[in-house]
Amino acid sequence: MKTLRFSAALLVAGTIALFSSCQKDDVTAPNSGLTVGGGLAVVVPDGGSINLSVAGPYASKTKGTVSRSGSVYTVSNFAQGTVTAPADSTQWSTVASTYYFNLSTNVGGDSVNATTVSYDLRFTGSANGDIYAYSGAYTLNYQDSAFATAKGVTTLAAPGGKLGTNRIYMGTVLISSSIGWYDYNITSHIVTAYQPRTLILKDRITGKPVWKVSITSIYSNSTPNAGSSATNYPYYNFQYQAL
């Protein structure tokens, strides 16, 4: 039986290699073991990237890109919506009130009803700035370590399963403090990712760390388009890696 399975595995691996030969780099995604239904993860070639507008079951409502370097995935300008901006096809005229991203399949997700639940991270609330993990599978935690070194071993639970506003400043004066992923300046109305803070998604049953995520910016191209009251949000930029 083992030999048979091994042969089948070889055949599958060979088939993948054959179909993927046009992609010059290694296409074995480190999280490909998470797939279901015959394998549904979008393979991001190492050193390459994919356009979220053309990949995945919810491509038509998703914008942004995912690139990969080894086992680290970098998401740029991720946003979901319904009407593309006429002047810039990378932007939405109408953004969704909640975004969904699927770390397991490397593409945008969804959760319209009980039949379409497909996501690991949910972005909602004010400016879609509150981040939740999918409660059916994970608990959301964090640790104040740099993304590269975070192991997800020593973590704290996200209060209420949510990470949103961290500290609020008026100019340089701290006026409020809680636990979240971003600092907000009510004078300039600019959001800044609090660092070093790495989000850790743990298996809800076993408690083992499964994913680490670091939010870089909520602005497109990771740069506010104005020094005050920037308008190019919410376009998420973040990194993730399987633990």
Binding site: G37, G38, G39, A59
Partner: peptide, 22 residues
């Protein structure tokens, strides 16, 4: 979480889906 057995063979799912027609 449940997922029906969709063998990954359906067309128009996403670009390159035939890689996963397992």
């Amino acid at each position: 979480i449940m997922a029906p057995n969709w063998g990954g063979t359906a067309p128009d799912y996403w670009d390159g889906v035939d890689k996963f027609a397992m």
